[in-house]
Amino acid sequence: MKNIRFFTIGLLSLVTLAACSPANSGQQAKTASSSRKPIKQSSTKKSSSKPSSTSSDSSSSDDFSDRYSMDPDDGSSLQYVPGAASIPEIEKLKNLHLSTGIIMKVNGQEVGGDKPTSSYDDMVAAFGQPVSSTDSANPGDGVNVWVTDNGDIMAFFHNNVLTDITFRLKEGDANHQSTGAISKSDTPKTALERLGKPYAIMRSERWTSYVYKDSNGDESNFSTQGDQIVNVMSAAETKRLKGITGLDKNQ
């Protein structure tokens, strides 16, 4: 049962981030499981006169894309997690290279080019053997779970490439925080200092996300790319998403 609840949390976080992504990221999500061939995309121009929002409850794709870059996230915000120096798993997560395995093209030109990737063997080298896998015969093409001294780790792989990872920290539930106290105008350092240790940390190729639970058990999160907060999702927005996806029925 523990692993089932853990999978639900990770899946909700993935859906939350996908819902906030710009159109290019939506295309990645649709094709990641079926193809690793280059994707041709048409270029678009953004009006310079378009205002941007600073509301912490805003998750519009237009506002998100104003701050979003196609460059891989380097996980630099992980250094600001309270107590990170005493949690060796966080430094290991920072050193991993996550990738969708998809090459993006704009006007025929590759965006980002070749990138380093981490494999199932890299995860084993960092954390040892997993305690469970959705495909024990081919763990490099499925979901694997590790149990560590400071929390549980769930990692997603596709064609032996690490695509997404969720680290559920011990004692994260005790914070009883929500992202209502921050906005996209804050820095990751300020946000993490204000909110404290998160309930869970998620990494993907494009962002690092921090999930919080309030005293009612409701989840909220914010996502970072480099030294910027690119999205903040409130508990109310997360609850609405749960209702749409049906994930609230699995808890």
Rank of each mutant, 00 (worst) to 15 (best):
S65H: 07
Y80E: 04
S55H: 10
D73Y: 12
L78R: 04
S55A: 07
Q79P: 00
Y80M: 02
Q79K: 10
D66G: 09
S55G: 05
S61I: 13
S58Y: 01
R67Q: 04
S77I: 02
D63I: 04
S55R: 08
G75C: 09
R67A: 13
G75D: 03
S60V: 04
D73F: 03
S69N: 08
Y80V: 01
D74C: 07
D57Q: 00
D63E: 10
P82C: 15
F64T: 03
D66E: 09
Y80L: 02
D74F: 03
S53G: 06
S60H: 09
S61M: 14
D74V: 02
D62L: 08
S76G: 14
D71L: 12
F64V: 06
S53V: 10
S53E: 04
P72S: 15
D71V: 10
L78I: 05
S65N: 13
S77F: 02
S56E: 01
P72M: 14
D73V: 02
M70V: 13
Q79S: 11
D62F: 15
D62I: 05
Y68Q: 03
Y68G: 01
S56N: 12
S65E: 13
R67P: 04
D63W: 06
S76D: 04
S65Q: 11
R67I: 13
D62S: 10
S60T: 03
F64Q: 02
S55E: 10
D57K: 01
S58K: 10
D57P: 02
T54F: 13
D57A: 05
D62G: 01
D73S: 14
S77V: 02
P72E: 14
D71F: 09
S59E: 09
D62C: 01
D73C: 14
Y80K: 00
F64G: 01
S61T: 08
Y80T: 00
D66A: 13
V81F: 01
D71G: 08
S77D: 02
F64I: 05
P82K: 14
S60L: 14
V81S: 00
D66W: 15
D63A: 14
